[in-house]
Design a binder for these strands. Structure first.
Length: 442
RNA sequence: GUGGCUAUAGCUCAGUUGGUUAGAGCACUGGAUUGUGGUUCCAGGGGUCGGGGGUUCAAAUCCCCUUAGCCACCCCA
């Protein structure tokens, strides 16, 4: 009786075809983060339960995988990278200095119900700047998102920016500060259920009056250029100090972004985004793909005033965002942006007979030293078989060097998409490497 | 967590009012072609019909339970 091979609900295997673009995406994220000066860190998958359940209480029990280890310690698996960052920062900030900019790519686990694009094990790609309150860091966070999406290959996307202080300032003005959580939750559904139902929910659940609900909804109906939108917002928040700070924050982000060359198409105010994380206190970002808005935000983040207050007396403000790798890959798949490749190598080296093995090994080593990925076929099967293998795996090229070629100290390089071959001296590995790279280029 | 839909070969699916040995396309392996892939032709392997229980002379087909997936809602650190 064999054990049925299967994976847990919400957990997935990745075949090369999906793992290759996945790794590429992570590499792109790392490159962009590094280009802004963020440094890599890592933290354990397991933490003491008390670290992770700091504020969640009962709710976190449902969401988090937790258990008792063999030493009787109560432990939990991290469900995001922000809480571990808070612990990490509280523990190490004196060695790190401020500001501290880090990126962190890694899996997190959530024991909640699964949906399309939502799994129990997922990769997060976070970057944060902690230890400073500067608006420059707020702005830079948006710039990273912008550069990241461009580096991945997106042209049509919208980074929506908002500021928590704006919303709270308005609510303060209206005397609704106490109910802000319920009201923001309602406001966040705007795109989904429309303004009328949002107003209804605000009145029913949030305790707002009709006119209060309408004023909150005005936030979401701005028009005109940056300056006039900011003017409208300033008017809405009136003399609320908090609200004015929010307007100023947004102004700084918009001006900076324009100075850095970010177009109005790619980054704009959307005062209705309110979603999520309770701990955000300032600027908020959410990013949508214009060609696939239904998939939701693929990169979100914002500013939080005191990341690590649960763990240290030191005040540690921060700002950052997180790329939802799995959701983004699902989107790219749907948009046909992922070409199917079954191999990461550039060329297949056909194996004729053991007599040529030393030459093959020497050639392969020389090509690899020049940055060309080479796969040597491991057995002397028929050439047709080996070429078919190369074709199906998506190799762009094959090197063919049988007894005849080797006797002449030559090899053939066959471009598998055009079908054309050319001959090179076996020793001229620089020329071969260059020709292979030409085949591999799109 | 609530409600609905679904599960047949590696993948996409057919399978009549319950009826005898469960099929197709693609993929895979071998051959036609002993040194040139993608096309074509031939052959082959691969299924306890998601799992368990029940009804029946007889179940892929009907009933119950369970697991997994999809959709909507709830929630979202």
């Amino acid at each position: 009786m064999k054990i049925t091979p299967r994976t847990l609900k919400g957990f997935r295997d990745f075949l090369p075809e999906s793992m290759i673009p996945r790794e590429r995406l992570m590499e792109t994220a790392r490159d962009v983060y590094r280009s802004f000066g963020y440094s890599p860190i890592d933290t354990p998958a397991l933490e003491y339960l008390e670290i992770l359940s700091g504020k969640g209480g009962e709710e976190s029990d449902r969401l988090m995988y937790h258990f008792e280890d063999h030493g009787g310690r109560k432990v939990g698996m991290r469900f995001d990278l922000t809480v571990p960052l808070a612990r990490f920062a509280a523990q190490h900030i004196n060695e790190l200095g401020k500001p501290f900019k880090r990126y962190h790519l890694g899996p997190v686990w959530r024991g909640e119900n699964t949906h399309r694009g939502r799994y129990r094990e997922l990769i997060q790609c976070d970057f944060d700047t902690i230890g400073v309150k500067s608006a420059v860091s707020d702005l830079e966070t948006g710039l990273v998102i912008h550069d990241l999406l461009q580096a991945i290959g997106f042209e049509h996307f919208t980074i929506r920016v908002n500021d928590r202080r704006l919303l709270n300032g308005l609510l303060e003005n209206l005397g609704l500060r106490e109910q802000s959580a319920a009201l923001l939750r309602a406001l966040d559904k705007l795109g989904k259920i429309g303004p009328e139902k949002v107003a209804q929910e605000m009145m029913a659940v949030g305790g707002a009056t009709q006119s209060q609900a309408e004023q909150v909804l005005q936030l979401a109906s701005l028009s005109g250029d940056d300056a006039s939108q900011l003017k409208q917002l300033a008017k809405l928040v009136g003399d609320s100090e908090l609200g004015q700070a929010g307007v100023a924050g947004l102004e700084a982000v918009l001006q900076g972004a324009r100075a850095a060359g970010v177009s109005t198409n790619c980054l704009q105010i959307d005062a209705s985004i309110a979603r999520g994380l309770d701990y955000y206190t300032g600027v908020i970002y959410e990013t949508f793909l214009d060609d696939l808005p239904g998939i939701g935000s693929i990169c979100s983040g914002g500013r939080y005033d005191n990341l690590a207050e649960l763990y240290t007396k030191q005040e540690l403000p921060g700002v950052g965002a997180s790329l939802g790798l799995d959701r983004l890959l699902a989107a790219m798949e749907e948009l046909g942006m992922l070409e199917k490749v079954g191999t990461p190598a550039d060329v297949l080296l056909v194996y004729f007979s053991a007599a040529g093995l030393s030459d093959y090994l020497r050639l392969a080593a020389a090509l690899r030293a020049q940055g060309v990925g080479v796969e040597l076929y491991p057995e002397a099967k028929k050439i047709g078989h080996q070429l078919r293998y190369a074709d199906r795996r998506g190799f762009p090229a094959a090197i063919i060097a049988g007894d005849d070629e080797l006797a002449r100290r030559e090899c053939q390089l066959k471009n598998l998409s055009s079908g054309q071959s050319s001959t090179f001296p076996l020793d001229d590995t620089a020329a071969i490497a260059e020709a292979v790279k030409k085949c591999a280029a799109p």
